[in-house]
Design a protein around this nucleic acid. Structure first.
Lengths: 138, 138
DNA sequence: GATAAGTTGTTGCAAAATGCAAGTGCAATA
DNA sequence: TATTGCACTTGCATTTTGCAACAACTTATC
C-alpha cells in the first residue's frame, strides 16, 4: 500500500484507498457517526480484526483519519476525519449513487433519495456538516 | 468478486470495482480513448496480462464494458463503455480531483485544472460526450 | 506460401493480501 | 479481587496478485 504506480491522480488515489475496506471505514465515520474500533468491527460487512487494525493505521498514516484518546474512556480511542478525509465525501456520494442506481438489492433510503433528487445540494450540505466536525480536531 | 457483503450501495459498488485495477481500465477507455487489450496493457501502470484478462471479463460480465470485434481488424477486439460504465464518470472525476489535491507528484493537467475551476461543468460536458459514444453500442 | 509481427490470451509459480479463530494486555467496573 | 469491555496480536489457511514464459490465431511481408 505504499508504492505508487504512476503520477496519474486517479491511480494515486487508488494506491491509497483502492481496496475493499478503506472506504467502508470512511463511510462509517462520515455518514454513520461511528468513531471507534469496536463500532467499525460491528458493521454489517464484518471486517476482520487484523484488516481493521491495518487499515486504521494506514488511514491515520495517510492523514485521512486522526486518532485521539476518548474523552470519556481513557482506554478507548476515537477516530475523526481530517479535512483530507472529509474531502473524500464526494467520492463516497458518487459510489453510493451508482450502487443504488444499478443494484436492485440496494434500496435508496433517506440519503439515497435525496442524492437522486439533488446531488449537489447533498454534497454542499454534507460538506458544511463535516467542516464543523473536522474543525474540532485542528 | 461475486459475493456481496451487505446491501449498502457503497459496499455493493466496492464489491464490483473496489480493486486497484478496474477503475484504471475504465479511466483508459473513458478519458484516454483506449479501446483494446494491447492499449490497456501499455498503460503506464503496467497491469499484468492475467489480471487484465480477468478484469475485462468481469467488467463485461457486469455490463460495464461491451466487447465487439474491431471493424478494421477482425483479429482484434474493442471495448466500449455501456451506459452503466459511463455512469461511473463522476466517480472517476472525484477520485481524480482528490488525488490531484493531495498529491504534489500528481500535477493537474488540462482536465484537472478544469475540474478545479468548475467541476460541475466538466461532469456535465463529459456526460454529453459519453452519451454520444455509448449510443453507438445500443 | 513461408516467415514474421501483432493481438489476445493461458499457464505455472512465487509473493502478498485477506479471512478466520483464538489468544493477549490493560484499564474501567462491579 | 474478579470480571468485563476494548484494542489489538498471532498463527495459519485461502485467495488474489505479480511475474515471466509460452501459445493460438490473424494479418502483414518477403
Amino acid at each position: 500500500m505504499d508504492k505508487i504506480r504512476s503520477d496519474c491522480p486517479i491511480s494515486c488515489t487508488l494506491d491509497v484507498i483502492g481496496d475493499k475496506w478503506s472506504l467502508l471505514i470512511i463511510r462509517d465515520v462520515m455518514l454513520r457517526g461511528k468513531m471507534s474500533y469496536s463500532e467499525f468491527l460491528n458493521s454489517e460487512e464484518k471486517i476482520a480484526t487484523n484488516i481493521l487494525v491495518a487499515r486504521l493505521a494506514m488511514l491515520e498514516e495517510e492523514g485521512i483519519l486522526a486518532r485521539e484518546v476518548s474523552p470519556g474512556n481513557k482506554s478507548k480511542y476515537i477516530y475523526r476525519l481530517t479535512q483530507k478525509g472529509a474531502d473524500l465525501m464526494p467520492v463516497i456520494i458518487e459510489l453510493m449513487d451508482w450502487g443504488a442506481k444499478y443494484n436492485r438489492n440496494c434500496p435508496r433510503k433517506e440519503l439515497g433519495q435525496k442524492i437522486k433528487k439533488d446531488k449537489a445540494a447533498v454534497v454542499r450540505e454534507l460538506a458544511a456538516v463535516l467542516r464543523e466536525k473536522v474543525k474540532g480536531v485542528s
